[in-house]
Amino acid sequence: MLVLGIETSCDETGVAVYDSFRGLLAHALHSQVALHDAYGGVVPELASRDHIRRLLPLVREVLRKAGAREADLDAVAYTQGPGLAGALLVGAAVANSFAFGLGIRAIGVHHLEGHLLSPLLEKKAPSFPFVALLVSGGHTQLMRVAGVGDYEMLGETLDDAAGEAFDKIAKLLGLGYPGGPALAELAQEGRSDRFAFPRPMLEQLEKNGDLNFSFSGLKTAVVTLTRTRALDEQTRADVAAAFQEAVADVLVAKSLAAMRTTGLDRLVVAGGVGANVRLRSVLDAAASRGKFSVFYPALEFCTDNGAMIALAGYLRLKADEAARALPLGFTVRPRWDLASVAPPETPG
């Protein structure tokens, strides 16, 4: 089965072609980071306007790189939600009408399901069931993943997402937007033990096994500290290092607790923050001590991309005989809870 994947939920236009026999054949991405930079954050209308300009050239590019023609495709998968409504609609409109024009199936995919399943694109892929730590600018969740569409929420953030906290602190330190990756780079020049920031929700974990997260108190602590002292180069680096260490500590502690609670020995880390080098090294160390395996997507598939959508779409279509209908209408779901996603219906 040859599946085209289209991702347009936020500020990245991603397209890929996935082959069920040969794996990922080609992918391409256009990031809008430069476009939104001057606005200090993503402007939804500008994001939609960029997607409609970029999407078709990217589809052509991946088909050419994959050595495939339009008529070779068996299905088109697209991100149906959650995300920015206008941005999602661009992908949904192009995906469904492209499938309609070819007489093939179109399937809407949950964006986070794409992230969750993205390590399955790798050669060293985890088998079900596993615990997934989904950590990005929009989400921070721990899930028990029993199979495609079989997700149990173990814990999630009560306020800011971890990546959002990274971006906000980066902005505070004058690193632009989105500055998460720049903050991680700056942290390498700093000492993580000069400042002691709180590890939010670790007390609750010890008390009652609470696997939820909270990052707003940590953010406030950093803001308060930076107001009281001059931010010379070394201080900025030390603040970045201490902040990153606090986030990594919390993410790792909760992930380990989730492994114990579920009794599973495979952890999948996905989402943009999953690319963080410090988080990966702390997790890898914990894994070798705790005798469990950690699986990451390739760095380029940690952030939003079309490959994970093509893969998730394929896995659903493979299992779901009911999804054979050709598209005659499309909807998007800007707010969509992953735990409400149902497993594919198997014929029976």
Binding site: V59, L89, N96, S97, G101
Partner: peptide, 20 residues
């Protein structure tokens, strides 16, 4: 309507690409 215009443009792109 911005959203309406993108629905028409998106559907046009998809169908036209499929049929060449």
């Amino acid at each position: 309507s911005f959203t309406g215009l993108r629905i028409a443009a998106g559907v046009t792109q998809g169908l036209a690409l499929a049929r060449g």
